Amino acid sequence: MTGLVLGVELDGDGAHPAAWRASAHTPAELVTGRVVADRAQLAERAGFAFATFDDAPVAPADAAGPQARLDAVLRAAYVAPLTSALGIVPTVHGVYGEPFHIGTQLASLDYASHGRGGWLVAADADARAAAAFGRPAVPSSTAADRAADAVEVSRRLWLSWEPDAVIADVPTGRYLDRERVRHIHFDGDDYRVIGPSIVPRPPQGLLPVFGSAALAERIDLDVALFDVVSGDPDELVSAASALASTLRSRGTGLAVLDLEVALDAAGVPAASRVAALDAHAPWARTRARFTGAAPALVELLAALATVVDGVRLHPAVLDVDLEELGRAVVPALRARIPVATPRAGDTLRTTLGLPEAARLPGSADRLEESA
């Protein structure tokens, strides 16, 4: 490990359902590249190891708030050349999405970011999501299996080109050596992928795959994101320790806690800020949450660093809390404990402290066996 891994969620206007009411731009500007790029660049300057971009195939539940959103891969691809160190991890749904398209899209993202791409795999079996993709709905009991298959297909596709497959031999007019490009021969429940990929092997070989802790039993995750519903710091650290240990015992690479954050800002206590937003739309508690001053958050993160591999922060209002995190939290935390710091030119795997990926996880070489 290279230190505590800090991530940040950059979807929408923030974790609070009424965050758009406290933002510095109009709701219409959410679907502009400027807002997406500004936030990603701020997260990079703050020193976050990675940023995630949430996504959903159905409209947000709050009909009073902004309804339009840009596709997560589109947002990630847009900010890729506008950043140089930040890991870029879009949410892509693995139940109803076309696995071949998922794999090639993400490989292209890895090229656009020079090896900083990742994938946060989602496994939502919602029938409305199926309709959005034009696919028949599947029961929730098989959703994780479908997502696991999509991950398997993508990983096989990423490795279907050997590292030296591209030869670009001008005298003979050959771009690639066909002997170094392999078929993957994958049979799913209702599809078959022969391969190989139409995109050469990504810079990282295998992009880091993130996912919820619930998927860790079915998918070899590089990063498992887990929740703890607790408001007491001591209880939070204790519960996080137990869950992180369980995830590591299953072979997960990194155990990363999700933590919602609302900070004191511009002389206004965080509790007052949250109360004002709650008057418009209550902020349901579904994961751990910190509300208070920056120094107290630094103390909590330092304590969590002793039991988890990383923390993904969900700022209540991005236009307020993200700036406070970069100004008053991350620098102070780095002065206290080792924190994974991305550097220009490093891959996301390097930043996360993951080993180089030359083979599929969980097998000596399943790709060779399928050839």
Rank of each mutant, 00 (worst) to 15 (best):
R349N: 13
P269Y: 07
A239T: 11
L300P: 02
A303F: 08
T246M: 02
A294N: 03
G353P: 13
T347G: 13
L333Y: 08
L243H: 07
V339I: 12
P338M: 13
H280L: 06
R248T: 07
G353M: 15
V228C: 09
V330C: 05
S230F: 03
T351L: 02
F226Q: 01
A335R: 15
S249E: 11
L352K: 11
A328F: 10
A279F: 06
R349I: 09
T341L: 15
R327M: 02
L277D: 05
T246F: 00
E260G: 15
V307D: 00
V223R: 00
R336F: 04
L225N: 02
D319W: 09
A242P: 02
S249P: 00
V311S: 03
R273L: 12
V256A: 10
A335S: 13
V307Y: 01
E260T: 14
D232E: 09
L243I: 01
D321W: 07
S249A: 06
G231Q: 14
G251Q: 04
R334N: 11
L300E: 07
A293W: 01
V329Q: 00
D319G: 14
L225H: 02
A240T: 01
R285T: 15
S238E: 11
D278E: 15
A335V: 03
R327T: 05
T291N: 10
L318P: 03
G231H: 14
A294P: 12
A240H: 01
T252K: 10
A276P: 07
A305G: 15
P269W: 08
D321N: 06
L354I: 08
G345N: 11
R218N: 05
G267A: 09
L247P: 10
V228Q: 14
A214K: 14
R285G: 12
E323I: 13
L277K: 11
R312A: 00
V229N: 00
P342Y: 13
G251C: 06
R273I: 05
P331D: 02
V298I: 11
V229M: 02
L257E: 10
A266V: 11
R312V: 12
L301C: 07
S245R: 14
A328I: 08
G345Y: 11
P282D: 00
E323G: 12
L215W: 05
T341C: 10
P331C: 07
P315L: 03
A270N: 07
T341W: 11
A340V: 14
T286F: 12
A276D: 10
L221N: 03
